[in-house]
Amino acid sequence: MIQEFLAGSLIYWLIAILFLLGIYGILDNNNFMKKLMAMNIMQVAVILFFLVLGQKSGGTLPIMIGHDNNVDLYINPLPHALMLTAIVVSLSTTGVALALLMRIQDHYGEIEEDDILRRMNK
């Protein structure tokens, strides 16, 4: 029972904890840079979740060995292909977010949320 839980679905709980850490960081931090880092943690949790869904026990990397195309021999290649692009896209969107943060820093001289909101409403 406990072994089945540890091997079968504990990783979902760990991924949920990682995701919730990201959400808590976004909600609770006041600094935009820390919010961006928490968002990246959330993104990593989503990527891990997709990769975990493609696992098969007894399967190896989705690269053909010889000409053996037995389905049980390889893990699912689809989540890997999807997440490969997601990682690179997350890199470039992080670049855009950093550029926006630099503009905010140029304009206000700080990246603290509550100060900026107060000065915007003035």
């Binding site: 690179v88 890199l91 470039s92 670049g95 550029a99 630099m102």
Partner: peptide, 16 residues
């Protein structure tokens, strides 16, 4: 595309 984009982002972020 990926190589040039990463270099371009680094260049833009460090231009200041």
């Amino acid at each position: 595309c990926v190589m040039a984009t990463i270099v371009g982002i680094l260049d833009a972020l460090t231009r200041g």
